[in-house]
Amino acid sequence: MPHTDGPAPELFTLSEVTFVAGGRSILDHVSDHVHEGHVTAIVGPSGSGKSTLLRMLNRLEEPTSGSIRFRGIPLPELDVRELRRRVGMVAQHPAMLTGRIDDEVRVGKPDLTDGEVDSLLVRVALFHIERERRPADLSGGEQQRLALARALAVGPEVLLLDEPTSALDRKAAESVDAVIASLVGLGLSVVLVSHDLERAAALTHDALVLDSGRLVDRGDPARVTYLEGG
């Protein structure tokens, strides 16, 4: 899915981002950028620091040194709650927080109207679902899409997705991918983490390849060098 509209504005700018935990270097001077309107994949083997990098983008983690800017503004200068509403996140196994579908969509925005809840559920292809069902009882793919609706409810400009489909079977993964593709088509930017570049490539404009905390390659997902399991 090549992007052809010329250079898009930078959404995130990473400068020399380093993260050390327990004496171990998780990220090592990573500098790069994420473009608006793109799907950017952070790929690499497990333990390469990609989830940590993703969590830094909404300040669930803080770099040990280096800096991250969102639309040119250093993250610490933004109100953290506002940042987190503008930069949504969905975990690999999203926690279901309530006992009803509608309540789940409203967690971050309790004043959504029924109509707004409906249209969010349409956007994630869950409109057919019985509203009385417990979110925790839904299938993995449905939970993933419900978590997307919950994240979209607060009106983010970009979504951070941590291995959105790796825990799902092929059919469920395709349904989640289709929803992500349609959201991108509507202008949403996405940063996703994946250990499987081949899977991610279909959705992705840019790939950042991490290995042992270092950025080893970046660019067109069809061309970057990524030794799986390496």
Partner: peptide
């Protein structure tokens, strides 16, 4: 036990107090 649930709420822009309420 509930770190993921608390962080899921924080990630939706809720305050620590709201995220920790349940």
């Amino acid at each position: 036990d509930q770190r993921a649930r608390i962080e899921a709420r924080l990630a939706l822009g809720l305050s620590p107090r709201e995220a920790f309420l349940e």
